[in-house]
Amino acid sequence: MSIDRLTPRTTPTATRSSYRVTALGGGHGLSASLAALRVIAAEHLTAVVTVADDGGSSGRLREDMDVLPPGDLRMALAALCDDTEWGRTWAAVMQHRFSSRDGVSGPLDNHAMGNLLIVALWELIGDHVEGLRWAGALLGARGQVLPMSRHPLTMSGLVHPPQGGEPVRVQSQAELARAGRVGRVSDVRIQPAEAEACAEAVSAIELSDWVVFGPGSWYTSVLPHLLLADLREALIGTEARRCVVMNLEAGSDGETDGMTPADHLQVLGHYAPGLRIDRFIADEACVKTADRPAFEEAARALGGQVSYHHIRRDDHPAVHDPLRLAIAFGEVFGS
């Protein structure tokens, strides 16, 4: 039977909250937010995912197949899987990476199964959004996953050497993610500059009660949504309230080395003048006492206030705890 005659598998409806939430980002940071938000937002949850990745399995598929990089989309889908046998199994399948036997270098090496599944659905169905809907139905994912654009994007930025000299423009998202170890990053751009945002993503932002940014790599996961004109205008103009989740280890991720929490907020204001952020969630132990006054002042400059919570895992302090973060979201959204 051809795929266009099939009806996507449905799963029992979870108890729904009254919040409609759109979370923006990519990679592990967005996955952390989604794992928490699915607890309180259920099927009123939309992930809008960056499509500028050009490294690893995603970069190879993007180059070979001329498709959107599927890796961050795959991770978002896996994060939305229920904590049931079905959900855990499919999340593991999506994240599984192939590895050839010893002594053999095969074409599938380091490709994630979920990346291949998503690209197969895109080829069969012919539409990125519809293909992701099918993938979500198969996984029993709570909510929906959307690309920020239907066009593959490329990131670039200037890297300023710490000892001075002429800055160098990096023309790759993968390289930009490591640039902070070389020098300070500025003038971050997305190409093509005129790329259109995914219309469904714009609608989700406009219809949300809350829009969530972060955590994640600040320049390559959080910032891209503010660089795309259509999304930036939607984020500035929406009646939704906006929340930023701060990283647990500010200034040590390879692209923002040496930056303080306040510096992170100033980046948002620089690239999106007029953007208002209502609330900031930060781990109580991860923002140093000495950094708090400047951080809270930067938050006020964006129109918001900081809430400190215990949101890290005790056994892995560099990782957000989904249930603790869900509680923090619930308290912030309800205040």
Rank of each mutant, 00 (worst) to 15 (best):
T7C: 11
T13I: 14
T22G: 09
T22Q: 05
T22R: 05
G26T: 04
H28C: 13
A36S: 15
V39N: 02
V39H: 11
I40F: 04
A41G: 09
T46V: 15
T50C: 14
S57R: 04
L61W: 00
E63H: 12
M65Q: 14
P69C: 12
A78L: 05
A78H: 05
C81A: 14
T84A: 05
E85C: 07
G87Y: 09
T89K: 07
T89S: 13
M94P: 03
Q95V: 00
S100C: 03
S100G: 13
D102M: 08
D102K: 13
G103L: 08
V104K: 11
P107G: 01
L108P: 02
D109G: 01
N115F: 11
W122I: 12
E123L: 14
L124Y: 10
G131K: 03
L132Q: 06
G140P: 06
A141P: 12
V145Y: 07
P147E: 02
M148V: 09
R150E: 13
R150K: 14
R150P: 09
P152M: 02
L153M: 07
G165C: 12
E166G: 06
P167A: 07
R169Y: 01
V170Q: 09
R178H: 08
A179K: 04
G183C: 02
R184Q: 12
V188T: 03
P192E: 09
A197S: 12
A197E: 03
A199L: 13
S203I: 00
E206H: 10
S208I: 11
V211C: 10
V212H: 09
P215I: 08
Y219R: 02
T220H: 08
V222I: 15
L226C: 06
L226Q: 08
L235C: 11
I236A: 06
R242W: 01
A250D: 10
G251D: 06
G251F: 11
S252I: 03
T256A: 15
T256V: 11
T260C: 07
G269P: 06
D278R: 06
R279K: 11
A282Y: 07
E284H: 01
C286H: 14
V287A: 06
A294G: 01
F295E: 01
A301C: 12
L302D: 03
G303A: 03
Q305C: 13
S307W: 05
S307Q: 05
Y308G: 10
I311H: 06
I311E: 00
I311D: 01
I311N: 03
R313W: 01
D314V: 07
P317F: 04
A328H: 06
F329Q: 09
G330Q: 15
E331I: 09
